[in-house]
């Protein structure tokens, strides 16, 4: 299987560094030391809310620097549309979250690079369609991108183990995603130090962690568990069928024909000429065979 979005070393490096920045952006209430400049102002949430869009833009630009093939872009568009279209189905109903299983399956079939971009485009599209742009959007995008990227990095199991693996991953990823988003919203929602569940700037990490968990418990735990359960159930029930459908689509799409052409011309050198030499005789052939099709 060819990956529709390849991660070159530079893009990988950018992803790793952005990951570190992301951890700071999500986790600053826990990481803050008492004597830090940010500890007493109310600026920290703002700085990170403005910083994250830039980081996301740079990383996405770096991933697509090699140029994304039209099939990959169209597939990204269609899967993002799917997520954006079914997202409202769950909104309002406690914890029914229908987006995550598309992210997990998409990342699984099309690879981590595609998954990262998919998480971003899907949440962004959804926000554009519903008028839900706000400071929380970059956090959601980054979180969703990590979920899909992680799904792409799972070990290559096949058969019956695969849906189980994906379901377990979905459950864990949904919970972590919920916790991360709570973490980002926490200082906004309750203001530093103003209630028993507010974060204490520069306080001991364990204390703040306990408060965060209590805050989650009090606000969104129901939703988070609902999300984990729906995603897991959806992955278990629809996983086998949808994985087959997605893989059929990936095979038919035959991503990245330029690379396919190179592989095919070298494999079939006996009866083909390289398409880049225009002055060969007119009986010559161009062979562009998708490598995935030539697999048995």
């Amino acid at each position: 299987m060819t990956a529709p979005v390849r991660l070159r070393p530079r893009a990988t490096a950018a992803l790793v560094i952005s990951g570190a920045i992301g951890i700071a952006a999500f986790g600053w209430p826990l990481l803050l030391t008492p004597d830090a400049g940010l500890a007493h102002g109310t600026d920290a949430p703002w700085i990170f809310a403005l910083l994250l869009p830039l980081v996301l833009a740079v990383v996405l630009a770096e991933i697509s620097e090699g140029g994304m093939d039209s099939k990959a872009v169209a597939m990204l568009g269609v899967l993002s549309a799917l997520g954006a279209a079914i997202r409202p189905l769950g909104a309002g109903t406690a914890g029914i979250e229908t987006v995550f299983f598309v992210l997990v399956l998409g990342g699984r079939v099309f690879g981590p690079g595609f998954g990262f971009v998919l998480g971003n485009t899907m949440l962004f599209t959804s926000a554009l369609l519903t008028g839900g742009i706000g400071p929380w959007l970059p956090y959601q995008m980054l979180g969703a991108a990590w979920v899909a990227l992680g799904a792409g990095l799972l070990p290559p199991l096949r058969g019956r183990a695969e849906p189980v693996l994906l379901a377990a991953y979905s459950a864990a990823a949904s919970l972590v995603y919920g916790l991360l988003l709570n973490l980002s919203f926490w200082p906004f929602a309750l203001g530093a130090g103003s209630t028993g569940l507010s974060f204490q700037p520069g306080g001991p990490v364990v204390d703040n962690l306990v408060r965060l968990l209590a805050f989650s418990l009090a606000t969104s735990l129901g939703w988070d568990i609902g999300r984990a359960v729906t995603t897991t159930v959806l992955v278990l029930i629809t996983g086998p069928v949808l994985l087959r459908t997605l893989r059929r689509a990936a095979r038919k799409a035959a991503f990245d024909y330029d690379r396919g052409r190179r592989a095919a011309t070298s494999a079939n050198a006996s009866n083909t000429s390289a398409p880049t030499t225009p002055d060969t005789d007119s009986a010559s052939a161009i062979v562009i065979v998708d490598p995935s099709r030539s697999e048995p």
Binding site: Y257, T272, S282, S284, A285, I286, I288
Partner: peptide, 12 residues
């Protein structure tokens, strides 16, 4: 054909 669809094209 064939750049997008794959397959073999001979002639020109």
């Amino acid at each position: 054909v064939p750049h997008f669809t794959g397959g073999t094209l001979t002639g020109r």
